[in-house]
Simulated assay, not measured.
Amino acid sequence: MRQYETLLLLSPELAPDGRKEIIDALTGIIERENGKMLLTDEWGMRDLAYAVNKQSRGFYVRLEYAAPGDCVTELERNIRISDGIFKFITVKLNEEFTPEEA
């Protein structure tokens, strides 16, 4: 397993229930694909440095998890087809990682 971090930029028009629904769906995908969630960090609504998809504000969420590479592929596929997420980035934090280390 490897340790990853995915930073999501959610639409500012989403209600808190809509944001929670998206986060829960992504967490479910990670766990279904034999991964383990380590941390869900909601940074809140922030102004963007420049407009992205005609949005000047966005709600930031950081997901930290341990998973195999196939899980990241499936997670990013679902992020791309999601309506409430308009920007994301995934970064590998640690090559050899066991969830017990967390």
Rank of each mutant, 00 (worst) to 15 (best):
V72G: 02
S82F: 06
A66V: 09
F97M: 02
G35I: 09
T90S: 12
D70Y: 07
T27S: 14
D41P: 04
L75W: 03
G44S: 00
L38A: 00
E31L: 10
R77K: 13
T90N: 11
Q3D: 05
A67V: 01
E100A: 12
F97T: 08
G44M: 03
D24V: 02
A66R: 07
A102D: 09
R57W: 04
F97S: 09
A25L: 15
R32P: 00
P68N: 09
I23F: 02
G35F: 01
E21M: 13
R19S: 08
K36G: 05
Y60T: 05
E13I: 11
K92T: 14
W43A: 01
T98L: 13
Y65R: 07
D70S: 14
T6I: 11
E101G: 00
E95S: 14
L26C: 06
E74L: 12
V72S: 04
I22R: 00
I89A: 11
R62P: 00
N78W: 09
I85V: 13
G28Q: 04
A102R: 10
E33Q: 14
I29F: 05
I22G: 04
L10D: 03
G18Y: 06
Y65L: 06
Q3G: 08
L39M: 09
N34Y: 03
L9K: 06
T90Y: 00
D24P: 01
I30F: 01
L7C: 15
I23Q: 00
T98G: 12
